[in-house]
């Protein structure tokens, strides 16, 4: 496994700190609508991004993609600004929390429609195959999306067309308020995927060694035109959306992947102080990004005029 675990830890801590800053802005009334926080997926997001080649690989994500967008390299202030509906945001305030898009970082879409991002990643895989870039298309989706026709159709299509594609299934056990065990007709997502002909891998984001290996194997398989699915267990620490407390998976303690990664670093001989310093720097950088975003003007009439010009083919 070639992941740099300290860097991974720094990135995961940054995402956690960023999300807690966003939660504070939710409390302050600065976040329009509901925010689906990535608390619980930080290690998965960071490890996935670290496995990919940002120059050739493309990623699509779900409605819960703050962490993924940050992990693949979108500007922190731009992500924060977009979530806050400010003019300096990734999309000037048009898109918001559920539709973060950073094509410059290889991040094609996050999506308000559960599962809809998955066929789009197949398109990125088709482009990579057609233009012989060596890249892969990666669709990140949840256990809820795993029951969508769009996802199941795309599993079959990816195998039928031998697309260089990775299906990254983040299993947090709950779709909105409905348990995966209730919603799924079969016990195993990997068995289901294997029946389509996908190469399958399973891992827990709390076990970084095995998870990192599985990610590398899944990506390598896809690059060899054998599309793969990797199912990874993640948390959903703050419920379906921030403020929805009934269905948080409440694994902030022993089940938390950041905590597990820190324990692993210490076990590997990394200095406790270095870990704490990384955490504290992450908090400072996240705070600075959100404070910078708050200085941006709120999107309004000028942005609306720009979007109308897109509709009319003038932009």
């Amino acid at each position: 496994m070639s992941l740099n675990l300290l860097k991974l830890f720094e990135k995961a801590c940054f995402i956690r700190a960023f999300e807690l800053e966003i939660a504070r802005q939710c409390d302050a009334g600065e976040v329009p609508g509901l925010a689906h926080l990535s608390t619980g997926t930080e290690v998965a997001d960071a490890a996935l991004a670290a496995t990919l080649d940002p120059t050739i690989d493309k990623v699509t994500g779900s409605h819960r993609s703050h962490g993924l967008t940050l992990a693949v390299g979108a500007g922190h202030v731009k992500v924060a600004s977009e979530i806050l509906g400010r003019v300096g945001g990734l999309s000037g305030g048009m898109a918001g929390t559920q539709h973060l898009i950073a094509p410059e970082a290889g991040f094609l879409t996050s999506n308000g429609i559960v599962g809809a991002q998955v066929p789009l990643a197949a398109g990125a895989a088709l482009t990579a195959k057609t233009m012989k870039t060596g890249g892969v298309g990666v669709a990140v989706f949840g256990d809820g999306a795993a029951n969508q026709g769009a996802v199941l159709e795309t599993m079959n299509l990816a195998v039928a067309l031998a697309l260089p594609m990775v299906f990254a299934l983040y299993n947090n056990g709950v779709a909105q308020t409905t348990g995966a065990a209730f919603a799924s007709g079969s016990d195993s997502f990997t068995e289901r995927a294997a029946s389509f002909g996908l190469e399958v891998f399973a891992a827990d984001s709390c076990d970084i060694d095995r998870f990192g290996d599985a990610l590398e194997q899944a990506a390598a398989s896809a690059r060899a035109f054998k599309p793969a699915l990797i199912e990874v267990s993640v948390g959903r620490n703050d419920g379906h959306y921030y403020g929805e407390l009934q269905t948080s998976t409440d694994n902030k303690n022993e089940g938390d992947a950041i905590r597990a990664l820190k324990a692993k670093l210490l076990e590997d001989g990394v200095d406790q102080l270095a870990c704490e310093q990384a955490q504290s720097e992450a908090k400072n950088r996240a705070h600075a990004a959100v404070v910078a975003a708050l200085t941006e003007p709120r999107a309004g009439r000028a942005q609306l005029q720009h979007w109308v010009s897109i509709a009319e083919g003038r932009a």
Binding site: K58, T60, P103, L108, T109, A116, V118, P119, L120, A121, A122, G123, A124, A125, L126, T127, A128, T130, M131, G137, G149, A150, E153, T154, N156, L157, A160, L161
Partner: peptide, 20 residues
């Protein structure tokens, strides 16, 4: 393609996003 309009239309959209 297979008879999977959602998947292959979506694949077309994604390929247009990435240069085809």
């Amino acid at each position: 393609t297979p008879i999977s309009e959602t998947a292959f239309v979506g694949m077309a959209v994604g390929s247009a996003m990435t240069g085809l």
